[in-house]
Design a protein around this nucleic acid. Sequence first.
DNA 1: AGCTGTGGCAGGGAGG
DNA 2: CCTCCCTGCCAC
Length: 794
Amino acid sequence: MDSFINDVVNNELLFGKDKEECIVGAYQLSDTHIRVFNRKDGVVESHDELFYPFFFASDAALLDGFVPEEKEKFWLVTLGGSNYYQCLAIFRNWRNQRAAIDHINKKRPVEPIESAQKYLPYESNSLIYNKGDAVTQYLLQSGKTLFKGMIFDDLYRIQLDIETDFDPKNKKNGLGDDEIIIISLSDSRGWESVLHAKKQGEKKLLEELISLVATMNPDVIEGHNIFSFDLPYLQRRCEKHGVPFAIGRNGMLPKTYPASIRFAERTIDYPYFDIPGRHVIDTLFLVQSYDISKRSMQSYGLKSVAKHFGFATPDRTYVDYNDISTLWENNHEKLLAYALDDVRETRALASLLSGSNFYLTQMLPYTYAMTARIGQAAKIEVLIVREYLRHKQSIPKPTSGKQSSGGYTEVFLKGVLGPIVYADVESLYPSIMLSYNICPKSDELRVFPEVLNDLKELRFKAKKRSQEEKNKGNISLANNFDAMQSSFKILINAMYGYLGYNMGIFNDFIEADKVTSTGQSLARKMITEFESRGCKIIEVDTDGILFVPPPEISSEEEEKKLVDTVSSVMPQGINIGYDGRFKKMISYMKKNYALLSYDGVMTLKGSSLTSRSGEKFGKEFVRRGFETLLTEDIAGLHNLFTEYKNKIVNHELDVTDFSRTESLKNSVEQYLEDVKAGKRSKAITYEIAIKSGLHITKGERITYYVTGSGGATSSWDRGKLASEWKKERPDENTQFYLKRLDEHCQKFLPFFKPQDYSAIFSSDTLFSFSPEGIELQKEMRHTETTSINEESSL
DNA sequence: AGCTGTGGCAGGGAGG
DNA sequence: CCTCCCTGCCAC
């Protein structure tokens, strides 16, 4: 094994390293030099190193000044340049960089350029890849990474939060229009301070902050929504006072440019702040990234997140946004306490969620700030590219196309069923990739499988070390190793996705399909093996299976043994793990079900049962209804229905019960354009955003309800902001919400005979409801599973 | 100076 | 009414 990741991590991270050489930051000094910051005995020192800006090109001929006869002089690998400097080429004599620069200079006059497109004689469909900024290129070429040998606690972080003199009467004020009155700060060593403008005024306040940052000289600046709010706000106020916003190392100014980050289907635009020599971490992004897999938070605001994680102290000060101005005049001590609580919570949040990004930084040729904001595919790609650079091997073109298959999903039984066993194939896709030698066709050096294998083994080592440290009672180190193993896991799981990534240099859709189709065969094999042992299969989704074990298997040990037996007949390298047991489940639809644990806790899964955009009353109704199904309380279900029906008719629900919260995927401008072009239909959310005059940006969420009278059909022009609803004059559309209740009732339709269903979900008072004779449909065959043939070559 | 994948359900608009 | 298509959200 000699791949870089193994070298870097195995020798220097897992087994320790001389910390004197730890790089904690870097910035571009000139066309050719990088200033590197090292931490030595707690003191930050710097030195300058040569770097070499370059592009990767699919063909040397794309380089202006390239002469075919000189082809031998080039490593076709790498043709250089950046957006701002002339193109450079790397010669066979890799280290003779000055000669390379001179060579190109002879071919072409030196002048700054706006983009490589202008400089290089290639069409827009030509293939030139710019691998990141100067620091990234330096790290790529040198094989170094930041933070190597450090643990998270070695990092010096500060937290920052600002409060402005916001006047609620003047809502038109934009970003940077109100004065900054408070700046609260804290650091990772426990120091805290709150600066304010009461005596000194805003200009002095800003100067104090900048000089304090210089003195503290932090590696990392953290804040909640710091990119979209605190930093641009500070910058704007500094501009107004003519104070240089010099918060970078050596008094450097930050560079800012528009950037975006994606969380699943949502894209958020924000101004990126590149602070020379430091790293900016926005805890808002950390939280959103965390919530993608957990899906448990209702709000990403600092206060609610702090409550969610349980580090909001009981005596925490809370202040309403609209009261800040008044408090500043009357009770500014309270405001200072509030601001301090904000940074404390930010610190706790960053400490909790930064571990995996910190350890990823030690493995990747990206800065910490960059690692935190790029996607999974970019992380995988740079690992492979670094290996190619090291071997001075040319980089392939990406292929265009599309992956065509995915996971196998099927529901065999619907209804109320139990007892339940849940089993799943451990790390299905990574295991397939390892066992079936998956490798992109263009990856001639076969770095992909090598990296995957290294990551797997390193994760194993890190897990082992974490356990060992835990046993020794060294909890802090155990946690660090745990964060490390989780960052390996992130990379491992991203490797499959990279194969099907449209823009990946090493993408391979055929290999991606091979992974998924193998996964499908394995899922089918798993089904037949459990079935042949008397299990009733309920649902299979990609790598997991829910089934009712045969009657003779009743204890947890017996269930585990059964899973082990099936696991042992699976192909080499594919293991099935026992992942839980449940008293009962309600199988509703594919990817939609309820599980009842043995301690009586019900968990709902699936968008039709849990969607956060849905009305709260609907979710409550379905949840409570499913609980009655599990206890077979049919009268209870009827009572539940009448309870909600009455609440709607009598306007007894609060706006929080019937409003919906949806996020806007596009900007309002984009929406209007698309509607005009006939590319999309009108949508209630965007229409409300326009009508209300609120400036709602891409990725933000809007909470609204349906108003108007008469027809039950909602339409795009009937929405109102939830904040406009008045308890004294409720104007929600009763007809509409009764229809919504009816739609939620439909979720119970499959569990009853039609006439019984009508009886339960009717509030006809002529005859009192009686559950007599109504039978719950407990087990319904869903699909004709005539033959799950297993002729696949497993 | 952006971007892992497919499968699946709910709900709404537009047009027949 | 129905179907088609799009968006949003979720499981894995």
